[in-house]
Lab assay of single mutants.
Amino acid sequence: MQRVNMIMAESPGLITICLLGYLLSAECTVFLDHENANKILNRPKRYNSGKLEEFVQGNLERECMEEKCSFEEAREVFENTERTTEFWKQYVDGDQCESNPCLNGGSCKDDINSYECWCPFGFEGKNCELDVTCNIKNGRCEQFCKNSADNKVVCSCTEGYRLAENQKSCEPAVPFPCGRVSVSQTSKLTRAETVFPDVDYVNSTEAETILDNITQSTQSFNDFTRVVGGEDAKPGQFPWQVVLNGKVDAFCGGSIVNEKWIVTAAHCVETGVKITVVAGEHNIEETEHTEQKRNVIRIIPHHNYNAAINKYNHDIALLELDEPLVLNSYVTPICIADKEYTNIFLKFGSGYVSGWGRVFHKGRSALVLQYLRVPLVDRATCLRSTKFTIYNNMFCAGFHEGGRDSCQGDSGGPHVTEVEGTSFLTGIISWGEECAMKGKYGIYTKVSRYVNWIKEKTKLT
């Protein structure tokens, strides 16, 4: 034993070699072989497995989906700052455009905790909710729209109204504003409101030439003092309507412009014939205590009207009353817009006519005020429907199939267009061939041609 100890002390290297040989010859039971080890760690190889990531292109799944990435790591994937920024906006807080917040056709661009709407022409605001041009839906104005110097929408209202708090709607500024039905039992019968379409306001006024200088022999019209197929109006439903009495009662109609003036057809009036105007009328054979009678003290036909040349060209006249009318729910003026808007309103496509005229061709006159909704007829169809001249200051309205029309005794009465609950004068009943005849239409004086003249002559002093 002493000898062994001496050998170990003198030859430590020998001992180490012996131990190493023993270990190498022993069977290893701690580690699995290569094949079995792979069965336990069965993990798919990654895209760049075996390579240094710093030297390969980034992978979106590896960089940002398996674990949260930084902007720089995302930049490695896209290799483009702009594309990385677009991805980053949604990656950080989701897609803010998912709810489609942009209105009126706006395009949404996502941002971090926010979004941006790219608005089409005519709109602005956070969600493109603000109209900035009158060309689109009248700028959301209830009545009139004008573009300011910086191309912003400025709404306005006709006389007797003021802008509401929203700067879009119009509200009454006087007790009985024009064009409004205020009798409670008839307010439910107000005709369907007309909503502004998209309009090209630059070209809204037709490029028409008034044929002022045409000389033409007097034409022989049949029954051209021209509501057939209409309905009984309720008291106060058309408070701007008046009836004219002269040699015979209810020979023509008219509309209240203001307390002192009536507008009617020029062919209705004769110099030297006494005319009485009755406002607030409903049943011409009954006294309903809503009527107001006034005498006409002055007749002003349009300066281009000449019955000797043509009885229905420039067929418009103004009547001055001896005493002002007292405005109330049964006696209310009709609204008159400017030339541009009167023309736009007419193009809405349908209007209402009213009167006490004959209820059928050569038949009896109506006792109760009649009204009828009539569609506008395109000019080409209008011209083809008659052998008589249709001037540019006239328009056609009615039904091709016949059966409904204005008729004798309705002449001078109103053709009105309702705009968001307020009625505007767009025409004056003038003439036609018979009444409600198939293929024939009622012919009306186009008020847009005469609004400046009306307003100039009827100013209240």
Rank of each mutant, 00 (worst) to 15 (best):
K152C: 04
I214P: 13
G13K: 14
G58T: 15
T84K: 10
E73P: 15
G21W: 07
R162Q: 08
E79S: 15
G50N: 15
E98D: 08
G412D: 02
I336V: 12
P120E: 06
N80R: 11
E72M: 15
I297Y: 05
L383F: 14
H314F: 07
A250Q: 11
V30Y: 15
I210G: 13
A436M: 15
T342Q: 03
K446W: 01
V30E: 11
N42W: 06
W261Y: 08
V92C: 04
Y341P: 03
L460N: 08
C145A: 02
T445G: 02
T190E: 10
S114F: 05
F238H: 04
Q57E: 06
T271I: 09
I214D: 07
L163T: 05
Q370T: 06
I344D: 13
S406P: 15
K109T: 09
V202S: 13
I284M: 07
I454L: 09
H361D: 13
E270Y: 05
C97N: 01
H267Y: 02
R3I: 12
K188S: 13
G432M: 06
S423I: 05
S255T: 13
T215H: 07
A317V: 04
G439P: 08
E73K: 07
I428W: 04
E54D: 14
H361G: 10
G236N: 05
N127L: 05
Y371P: 05
S148H: 08
E323W: 06
K234S: 12
E434H: 14
T84I: 04
L32R: 10
F87A: 15
N36S: 10
C268E: 01
K247L: 07
M6A: 14
R404A: 09
G280H: 01
K362A: 14
L130I: 10
E270S: 06
T445E: 03
R384Q: 14
E270T: 13
E73N: 15
N138H: 03
Y47T: 15
L130K: 08
S11A: 11
V278Q: 04
G58A: 08
Q241E: 03
S255V: 11
R379Y: 14
P177D: 00
T215G: 11
T81Q: 13
E433H: 13
I7C: 07
Q2A: 14
Q237F: 11
V451L: 04
K168P: 02
T287S: 13
R191G: 12
Q143C: 00
V195T: 07
A207H: 12
K146L: 11
M65H: 15
I428Q: 03
T194L: 06
N127T: 06
W453Y: 02
V202A: 13
D232R: 13
D378I: 03
T29F: 09
V248R: 13
P172G: 07
Q2F: 10
E76P: 15
E456T: 11
K126I: 13
N166Q: 03
G106Y: 01
L163P: 04
S70K: 14
I334F: 01
T81C: 04
W356A: 03
D410N: 10
N343V: 04
L14D: 02
S148E: 09
Q96F: 05
C108I: 01
E433W: 05
I136S: 13
P101E: 02
S148P: 06
E67K: 03
H302K: 01
E288T: 07
N452W: 05
D338Y: 03
T264C: 06
Y391K: 14
C435S: 04
I284Q: 07
A308R: 13
F78M: 15
K438A: 07
I17L: 12
K440S: 10
I214L: 09
L130G: 05
S385A: 14
D131Q: 15
D200G: 13
F123T: 05
Y161E: 00
G230P: 11
T381L: 09
G253T: 11
R373K: 15
H289W: 10
T389Q: 15
R75C: 04
S156L: 06
S187G: 10
E456S: 13
N80P: 15
G403P: 15
R358S: 14
F395D: 01
A164I: 04
V257T: 00
A279K: 01
L425R: 00
L372E: 11
N42R: 06
P235C: 03
S217Y: 12
R298L: 03
K459M: 14
L60P: 15
N42F: 06
P301D: 03
E281F: 10
V56W: 03
H415V: 03
K440M: 05
Y352H: 11
F144H: 02
R294A: 02
Y201T: 12
S25N: 10
E208F: 06
H314L: 00
W431M: 12
A308S: 11
P414F: 10
N304K: 09
I15C: 06
E165P: 14
K446A: 08
S169K: 08
S430R: 02
D198E: 11
S385R: 13
P414L: 12
V374H: 02
N304H: 09
T445A: 05
T386W: 07
Y161K: 00
H303Q: 11
N295G: 07
K440L: 03
S411G: 13
N104L: 01
C134R: 02
I429G: 12
L460T: 06
I443V: 08
L372G: 14
K188C: 05
N127H: 13
E286G: 09
C102K: 00
I40T: 02
N310M: 05
E434Q: 12
K89Y: 06
L24P: 03
C155G: 00
Y161M: 04
L23G: 03
L321K: 00
S11R: 13
C117M: 00
